[in-house]
Simulated assay, not measured.
Amino acid sequence: MRALSEIEKISLTAVLKMETDALIMQRATDTLISDEDLKRLSQSSLLATEGRVKAIQQFLIENKVIAVEEE
């Protein structure tokens, strides 16, 4: 795989930030939902967003865009 340009790295980190912000908002909103059908829909959306965040994080780690501190 080719090396990522600086603008690609910045774009990826911006997408990750947007997705994590959306996840925070979804979690907060999910607690307010009382309708069971809407709650299931919200929870599946939460799982999808969590999957996207994890995939982006993994991509950034594998391509050494972000460093991971080992304990």
Rank of each mutant, 00 (worst) to 15 (best):
24 I>W: 06
65 V>K: 02
23 L>K: 09
57 Q>K: 15
48 A>R: 15
27 R>S: 04
7 I>V: 12
42 S>H: 08
41 L>E: 09
44 S>Y: 07
71 E>A: 15
58 Q>D: 13
66 I>E: 07
33 I>H: 03
15 V>D: 13
61 I>S: 05
16 L>S: 03
42 S>Y: 03
66 I>H: 01
49 T>A: 07
11 S>W: 13
18 M>R: 01
49 T>V: 02
18 M>T: 00
31 T>D: 01
17 K>E: 08
33 I>P: 01
62 E>F: 07
40 R>C: 01
12 L>E: 10
23 L>N: 13
10 I>M: 13
56 I>M: 08
56 I>N: 01
34 S>R: 15
32 L>T: 10
25 M>S: 11
47 L>P: 00
58 Q>W: 07
31 T>I: 07
19 E>V: 03
24 I>H: 08
52 R>V: 10
9 K>H: 08
48 A>M: 06
70 E>V: 03
9 K>F: 04
14 A>C: 03
11 S>C: 12
4 L>T: 11
47 L>F: 04
32 L>K: 12
35 D>F: 03
1 M>A: 15
14 A>K: 11
46 L>Y: 07
5 S>L: 06
61 I>A: 08
46 L>D: 00
65 V>M: 06
65 V>N: 11
33 I>Y: 01
70 E>A: 03
25 M>R: 12
4 L>S: 12
54 K>N: 15
14 A>S: 07
3 A>G: 09
26 Q>Y: 14
3 A>L: 13
4 L>P: 07
15 V>Q: 14
13 T>W: 07
45 S>N: 14
37 D>C: 02
32 L>W: 01
38 L>N: 04
39 K>T: 00
38 L>S: 06
28 A>W: 04
21 D>R: 07
9 K>D: 08
35 D>Q: 05
63 N>D: 07
32 L>V: 00
4 L>Y: 15
34 S>P: 02
2 R>Y: 08
46 L>E: 10
60 L>V: 05
65 V>D: 04
7 I>F: 13
